[in-house]
Nucleic acid binder design. Structure first.
Ligand SMILES: [Mn+2]
Ligand SMILES: [Mn+2]
Ligand SMILES: [Zn+2]
Ligand SMILES: [Zn+2]
Lengths: 136, 136
DNA sequence: AAGTTGATGCAATTGAGTTGCAAAGTTGTT
DNA sequence: AACAACTTTGCAACTCAATTGCATCAACTT
């Protein structure tokens, strides 16, 4: 388990400090994306700034991706192994208005859009809101 | 011009106060979506809370829609006549990373997504980031 | 005119995110 | 081991958009 965590950190050339191991460990066991605040509460004692910078580092190194689901707080979730965070790696996200959870729909790629002429694409954010399967 | 503004307000059963007429007038002449702050600066003297509440009212009455483009400030744009803000009325939005403008791509409907079983759809937000035609 | 309702203006608060800076930890060199 | 150079962490303070409270003002109603 710890070896696995360290491997993941090393693979993305992130120095495996105690804090980073802990954060990655917690992130890995989430079923849905989490906010900084939620993450903070999962630790006995955690400074939110350290958490903030840890997440920034993880995101820069493409270990996690952030999701702006429109709720006012950014959510974070682990990237898949193969993910390079390129437009073709992007997937749809789902925000359940019942349980307030944000899910990565990893298997649903963002459909392509025909932009007007001379518009070039860098990135797409697609968040579907509704009721998830658990809340029906 | 003023009759037109009042007609639009009446059509959505919004009492046409001076403030609301002004705000709608300014909104109508925008080529791209605007934030509350940008709107505030377009008036000599405008209280941002009144503006805030005006926009809330307009949005509730479906005269305008808000766009969370991921920049940290919500943008607002007029709805089209026919718009009921139902999922089928939704369109793609485009944020230009060069000119920092957010555009309604009114003619580009949001492509449909095949959600996993038992997920029900209420709403979709799709924001494409890139470079707009003016900034190429 | 008095009463009721809704709209507006100003001050203050919220809350997520961010920055500054010093202390603590790490790594490499003499 | 001692030192310097660099990175990471923790605490306090700050930013900035959004929001709330409350008093005042305007527009109808009886
Ligand atoms: Mn995701
Ligand atoms: Mn729009
Ligand atoms: Zn749910
Ligand atoms: Zn542009």
């Amino acid at each position: 388990m710890n070896e696995n965590i360290n491997n993941k950190l090393n693979a993305k050339s992130i120095k495996p400090t105690a804090m980073r191991q802990l954060v990655l460990h917690v992130l890995a066991e989430q079923k849905s994306a989490v906010s900084m605040q939620e993450l903070e509460q999962k630790f006995e004692k955690a400074d939110k700034v350290t958490l903030y910078r840890t997440l920034k580092t993880f995101e820069e190194k493409k270990l996690i991706h952030s999701i702006d689901d429109g709720t006012g707080s950014i959510k974070y979730a682990l990237c898949r192994e193969s993910c390079q965070c390129r437009p073709e790696d992007l997937h749809v996200h789902f925000y359940c208005t019942e349980c307030k959870q944000t899910y990565c729909l990893n298997d649903i790629p963002i459909p392509s859009v025909n932009l007007p002429v001379h518009f070039t694409l860098e990135n797409i954010n697609m968040v579907v809101k509704g009721i998830c399967a658990n809340c029906i």
